[in-house]
């Protein structure tokens, strides 16, 4: 008996609520994400922060921001599924839940985790590197869509990685080709938002990021049942 007209939604939210509760108590994933992000952010600001002037520096700043977010995501987002496998709770979860709500719940959890990271890291990055954001709306939309895309692709990759032996390195290796289009689009849009190109150019990049999110989510939902039942 479903409790709502959208049974997937209520079941997905149950997974999200459970993961947030556990994360709030243990901070397994958030600690990994945050420590990596803060360490790299401080290193970057000390090493290149003083040279961040001139139009060509927007290229470097945009790339650095997404490198920090990419590797932070790789450090923490795989925990969602790895933790279930390692603790043996995956059997109870498989017995109780259909695959789709599990994927959506884990995806939403990664979105929340990555958004809470970007809310901290992105303003710090802008301040520490003394950047000026020319297109504020475009910059926020880029960060939003980029983080959503990172979370979407990372979630299905985490499910695959959780089944493998060499979990640590596999996540980054697998995710690189899949996340490359997202990274290129996000870097290009960020560069434009920081004043490194004609303002109109950001629209095409944002559209690309929007469609990347749609394709990543749809493909992940189609694939997940096979990965989950493997």
């Amino acid at each position: 008996m479903a409790t709502s007209s959208f049974p997937w939604l209520s079941r997905s939210l149950a997974v999200l609520r459970k993961d947030l509760r556990i994360e709030f108590r243990t901070r397994y994933a958030y600690s990994a994400l945050l420590m990596f992000a803060i360490t790299t952010l401080v290193t970057v600001s000390f090493s290149v922060g003083g040279f961040m002037s001139g139009p060509e520096m927007t290229d470097i700043a945009a790339a650095l921001l997404w490198i920090i977010l990419f590797f932070s995501a790789m450090a923490g987002l795989s925990r969602t599924f790895v933790q279930e496998e390692e603790s043996g709770t995956v059997i109870a979860l498989k017995m109780a839940a259909e695959p789709e709500p599990v994927y959506i719940g884990k995806y939403l959890f990664n979105v929340v985790l990555l958004f809470s990271l970007t809310v901290l890291v992105v303003p710090l990055f802008v301040v520490m590197l003394n950047l000026s954001v020319v297109l504020v709306g475009g910059f926020l939309a880029t960060v939003f869509l980029g983080a959503m895309g990172l979370a979407g692709a990372s979630t299905i990759l985490a499910a695959i990685v959780a089944k493998a032996g060499a979990k640590g390195s596999l996540m980054t290796v697998l995710s690189f080709p899949i996340l490359l289009p997202l990274m290129l689009g996000a870097i290009s849009a960020t560069r434009t938002a920081l004043g490194g190109g004609p303002p109109g150019a950001i629209n095409a990049d944002l559209l690309m990021l929007f469609f990347y999110n749609g394709v990543a989510l749809a493909a992940s939902l189609l694939l997940f049942e096979y990965v989950w039942n493997e």
Binding site: A14, R17, K18
Partner: peptide, 25 residues
């Protein structure tokens, strides 16, 4: 023996989760 429950949750929270994920009140 190899089915584990969520150690970081209380017994009631575990039951709440398994009800929710099964779509039960």
């Amino acid at each position: 023996p190899d089915l584990e429950l969520y150690g970081e949750l209380s017994a009631v929270e575990n039951l709440e989760f398994f009800s929710g994920v099964r779509g039960l009140p």
